[in-house]
Amino acid sequence: MGADTVRIGIAEDSALFRDGLTMQLGRLDVQVVITAGTGDELLAQMARQPIDAAIIDVRMPPNFTDDGLQTAEKLAASYPDTGILMLSQYAELSYATRLFTTGTAHRGYLLKDRVANAEALRDALQRVRQGESVVDDQLIGRLLNHQRHLNKLDDLTPTEQAVLRHMAEGRSNAGIATTMWTSTKAVEAHMTRIFAKLEIPGSPDDNRRVLAVLAWLRGT
């Protein structure tokens, strides 16, 4: 285990899922150093055991409501550079919106069953560690599909639609450029056009642009 081995903390009340996740993470060459059944337990252990990223279930004891989100907010306040990957059983984008309201960097939102996909999990963890945002690409795909039927994307070229999708997923300009095999400059030009065509409030340079894009996509 090298010096750059990633240290992970998990807050998840289902022992079976926790074990499965630990196994999956082990195969990704990351080390699970904290496994906690509640958010408060995770925060308590983090005082003694530093971690690089936390994977937190939204619905946990004691309230089984949005306990995970509350944990994430506390964690981000104390450890702003620690990555947070929020897991939710249900596709509820307002959770993601709420997660990003207090900051977009190092934060991600995934559907729970996405962790079965090793590549998706690796990519998400890597991005939150690097300071990007992550929004489950399945959710974004569904949202775009929904908007496409409302004919709101008709003005965008296929390339622009792809850039919009990556923005909504929370990727950085560099990340988008790498993924699309193009230059950062070209990506920035696409973005400016997208913001203008869709009349999205704000600018593509804003580090909170993922929120603006999500809001536009949801029609709110």
Binding site: L16, F17, M23, A116
Partner: peptide
């Protein structure tokens, strides 16, 4: 809903992870 959410769904996701691990 709670039974499905806290029990069955979690187990199925765990099984899904194991299948993925076995596959790779």
């Amino acid at each position: 809903e709670r039974d499905l959410h806290d029990g069955t769904q979690q187990r199925l996701v765990a099984i899904s992870i194991m299948l993925g691990a076995a596959e790779s």
